[in-house]
Design a protein around this nucleic acid. Structure first.
Lengths: 239, 239
DNA sequence: CGTCAGATTGAGCAGCTTCAACGTATGTGG
DNA sequence: CCACATACGTTGAAGCTGCTCAATCTGACG
C-alpha cells in the first residue's frame, strides 16, 4: 500500500524488508478526504500523522487580513504531517486540493518506531529535512526571483517530485491546481499568475490545458526558473 | 558548555542528566569563526555538524545572478547544520554574521545518539522541525505581508528567540545585522530596508542604535507584523 | 438554458527597485 | 595628527513589477 513512500525512501537509502514491514504495520487505517476539505486544522493536536497516498494536498496559513499563503504542496508519498508527531500543536492547516487517499499512522506507532528502529527513524527524519530544504528553496525563490522565474521554478520542482513517484508520463504531469491556488503558493495575485502563465506558454516553455501540464523545453524552463535539483536530495546514500 | 542548547531543549521537554551528559560528550571540539567567514559552504559534505554557542550566523543561497537570499538567522543554542547529518550534501552555505563560537559534533556521534537514545533523538529531530516551522512562517510573511509588516515580524521573532536563551535585557537585544543583511533576509533592497526602519522608528515602535534594538511598543509591533509565537513552539510537552 | 467556478483582459495605481549621490563614523598609514 | 579609505546608513528621483478593481469569456453541469 505504501508504494509511493517506499519509492521515495528507496531512492535515498536501502530499506530492509523488516523496515518495510514495520512501516506497513504502522498504518492504522486509510482515510479519504474530499477536495477542499481540511486534512488537519491549525490549532489541532492530532494523535496521528497523515501519509498522502493519492491526490494533492497543501499546507497553508491564513493571515488576520484573510489572505492565504500555501507553504507546501504535497503529492503521493509525502508524509504530510509527520511534524505533528513532535510539534504537537499544528501551527498551520493542511487542505486537500483534490480528493485524497491518506494512510493514517498513530503517534504511538511512530514513537515505537523511534524506540526500536533507529535507521528507519533517521529516514523519517530525513523526509522532514527534505521538506525543510524545499522551504528554503521556496524562500529563495520568493525573495529573489521574478514572478515568471518563480513560476518556472515551481513547475520544475513539481515535475521532478511527481516523476520519482511514477506520476509523470513523458513530459506531462497531471497538475490539478487552480490559478488562485498557484497565486497563494507563489505569493501573487490570481491575475498576475494568469499573465505569467501566458508568458511561459508564449515562449514555448510549457503547455497547460485542463490539468495536463506539458514541459515543452525542459532546459530553458530550468534556466528561466534558476532551477537545480540538489535540494530535493535525490541521492542514494548511507544514512 | 552547551547551556544555550540545553535551555532551548528544557523549555520543550524534560532532559535527563544522562541525556545532558551524552550531549556534552558528543562535542568533539570548539571552533571559532570570524565574522563574514563561511561556517560551511554550499556543496560541502561535512562529517560533522555545528552547534552555535555564541554569535549570529545565517544560512544563505546565492543565485546565478549573484543575488543572495538569507533563509535563516541563527542565534546561540541553534544547531545550525544538524541537517547535514542526514542530508549529506549542503544545498546552501552558512556564514558567520559576527564572530562565532561553535561546538562541533561529529556525524558518527550523532549516529550513536540515534542508535542509543531515542528520546534525545526525538528532541534533536524537534529542533530541525522548529527550523521548518520558522521557514513556513517566513514564507507566509514574504508572500503575504508588506515590507514593513515583514520587518516587524522578523524583529518580534528574533526578540523572543534571543530572550529564551537569555540574550535580552528588558526590552533590548543586541542585533548586529546590517541593513544589507536585513535586505537579503526579507528579500528587499537595502534602500527599502532603510525606509521601512525609519517608518517603524517614526511610529514609535522601535529604537535601533548601533546594534542595540529596543522594542518600544511590543503590542503594536506584534500587531503590525501579524505576529503570534505559536510556530516557535515554546511549549513544554512530552515528546 | 441558467448557473457557477475558473480563466482572461484592460486600466490605473502602489510598492518597491534602481541608480546615484551624499552623510557619518571608524580605522589606518604617513 | 591629518589625509584618505572604507563600511554603513540616508536621501531623492524615476521607473518597473505586480496589485486592485471590474468586466468579460469559457466550459461543465444540473
Amino acid at each position: 500500500m505504501l508504494t509511493p513512500l517506499i519509492l521515495r525512501l528507496e531512492q535515498r537509502d536501502r530499506l530492509s524488508d523488516e523496515e518495510k514491514r514495520v512501516l506497513e504495520n504502522a498504518v492504522s487505517r486509510v482515510r479519504v478526504v474530499a477536495a477542499d476539505e481540511d486534512v488537519v486544522r491549525e490549532g489541532d493536536r492530532p494523535a496521528e500523522s497523515c501519509l498522502l497516498l493519492e491526490g494533492f494536498a497543501a499546507r497553508y496559513k491564513i493571515l488576520s487580513n484573510g489572505r492565504r499563503q500555501i507553504t507546501a504542496i504535497h503529492v503521493s508519498g509525502d508524509f504530510v504531517d509527520l511534524h505533528s508527531f513532535l510539534l504537537k500543536t499544528m501551527d498551520h492547516g493542511v487542505v486537500a486540493l483534490t480528493p485524497c487517499r491518506i494512510a493514517v499512522v498513530s503517534h504511538a506507532a511512530l514513537e515505537k518506531i523511534t524506540d526500536e528502529h533507529p535507521h528507519l527513524t533517521r529516514l523519517l527524519w530525513l523526509m522532514t529535512l527534505i521538506d525543510g530544504a524545499i522551504h528554503r528553496e521556496w524562500l529563495t525563490a520568493m525573495g529573489r526571483l521574478s514572478a515568471t522565474a518563480h513560476m518556472a521554478h515551481l513547475i520544475c520542482e513539481l515535475f521532478l517530485r511527481l516523476s520519482v513517484v511514477g506520476r509523470s508520463e513523458e513530459d506531462t504531469i497531471r497538475l490539478p491546481l487552480t490559478q488562485a491556488e498557484l497565486g497563494d503558493t507563489l505569493g501573487l495575485s490570481t491575475v498576475h499568475v494568469n499573465r505569467v502563465l501566458q508568458e511561459l506558454r508564449k515562449d514555448g516553455l510549457i503547455r497547460w490545458q485542463g490539468d495536463a501540464l506539458t514541459i515543452l523545453d525542459w532546459e530553458r524552463l530550468k534556466q528561466v526558473g534558476n532551477f537545480t535539483s540538489t535540494y530535493l536530495n535525490f541521492q542514494y546514500e548511507q544514512r
